[in-house]
Design a protein around this nucleic acid. Structure first.
Length: 372
DNA sequence: GTCGATGATTCATG
DNA sequence: CATGAATCATCGAC
């Protein structure tokens, strides 16, 4: 309690010992703390009933009113925190802030198609995993938020009640109570901000871990690899699928177009680097296609310049087999041979460099390789 | 744990 | 912008 016998009153009634019992009353107030509870209650009651009480109380209120300005100064420092808005926006964007996800049709429904064109199972699986984790974060966030809000409410109510109760004895204005409530809210919102911040961090971490495809390399399905290889080896003379072809390959293999592009990029370069290593694979696929009645050729992706129009006419898969076998027998696998030398420089738009070395009996092809 | 295979990314080039 | 080349990062077999 900070209510000394206030000797320095400015203008109002002179605090002089005009009233002989004022000091006495104050004395009694001060003494209350030293008394037992029952005694104090009795004293309190007596004081409340004292005829001087209203007057004394109003004086105290006046004094308090004078000092309250200093409190006000402190109060004004509470900017509408831009950071909080930012955090809120982010949580909203990430779908964390939404109060409650409507009941969704079970975990299967969580598998959202992440890629356009109805894609990869792997992607969906990964995505559902991501969503599950995100949902977990959301759950924790909301339960914590609720806890804080409840605690804040309880505490505020408690403090308000306490102050109201005390305001009967002490000069506590409603404004002061309001200020106190604001202070409490401020403290709790600071805690909330921390909660929001750490939630944001968690979401970011989750994001980077799950959505960074490079960290989660998955081998393509057998189906995808087969489709791609079939195309590659059946178009060895020109393994550059058109956009259309890529789209169809992507659809057939359940992967994306850019994955098809990546695959072909890697395949071309790796094949070129070590043709010998791929001989077996090439034979497998080309034979398969020859036997399988060019299944993927007939229904397969359209080829821009496959077969007869290419520089190395290969009208059928059988021809491809022959070419490869010839190649296998002829090529001593020169590291960085003609294939390498032709890699750069001879990239025309319509007719990209052929991957197969030219058949030995085709001087023009050799020249085209060598000249480049 | 090592190592080769493989999908993705980055950068340079034409 | 498509491609080649180099590189990274992960997977899977051993």
């Amino acid at each position: 309690m900070d209510s000394p016998p206030c000797p320095q009153l400015p203008a109002p009634p002179p605090p002089a010992p005009r009233r002989p019992d004022t000091g006495e009353v104050l004395q009694q107030i001060m003494a209350i703390t030293d008394q037992s509870l029952e005694e104090a209650q009795a004293r309190k009651h007596a004081l409340n009933c004292h005829r001087m009480k209203p007057a004394l109380f109003s004086v105290l209120c006046e004094i308090k009113e004078k000092t309250v300005s200093s409190i006000r100064g402190i109060q004004e420092e509470c900017p509408p925190s831009a950071q909080l808005t930012r955090l809120d926006n982010m949580l909203l964007a990430e779908g964390v802030s939404r109060p409650e996800r409507r009941g969704r049709g079970g975990p299967a429904a969580a598998a959202n198609p992440a890629t356009p064109g109805g894609c990869s199972n792997d992607n969906s699986l990964e995505h559902s995993d991501y969503r599950a984790k995100l949902s977990h974060i959301r759950q924790i966030y909301h339960s914590e938020l609720e806890k804080y809000e409840q605690a804040c409410h309880e505490f505020t109510t408690h403090v308000t009640n306490l102050l109201r109760e005390q305001s009967r004895m002490r000069p506590i204005s409603p404004k002061e109570i309001e200020h106190m409530v604001n202070v409490i809210h401020g403290k709790f919102s600071a805690i909330q901000m921390q909660l929001k911040q750490s939630t944001c961090e968690a979401v970011m971490t989750l994001r980077s871990r799950f959505l960074d495809a490079r960290r989660k390399r998955r081998n393509f399905s057998k189906q995808a690899t087969e489709v791609l290889n079939e195309y590659f080896y059946s178009h060895l003379s020109n393994p550059y699928p058109s956009e259309e072809a890529k789209e169809e390959l992507a659809r057939k293999g359940g992967i994306t177009v850019s994955q098809v592009s990546n695959w072909f990029g890697n395949k071309r370069i790796r094949y070129k680097k070590n043709v010998g290593k791929f001989q077996e694979e090439a034979t497998i696929y080309t034979t398969k296609m020859a036997v399988g009645g060019q299944g993927s050729q007939a229904s397969g992706p359209s080829t821009p310049s496959s077969g007869s129009s290419g520089p190395f006419p290969m009208t059928s898969a059988g021809a491809a087999v022959v070419t490869l076998q010839t190649l296998a027998s002829l090529r001593p696998a020169p590291p960085g041979g003609s294939l390498r030398s032709q890699a750069r420089g001879s990239r025309q738009g319509a007719v990209p460099p052929a991957m197969t070395a030219s058949p030995s009996g085709d001087p023009s092809s050799i020249h085209s390789d060598a000249s480049n």
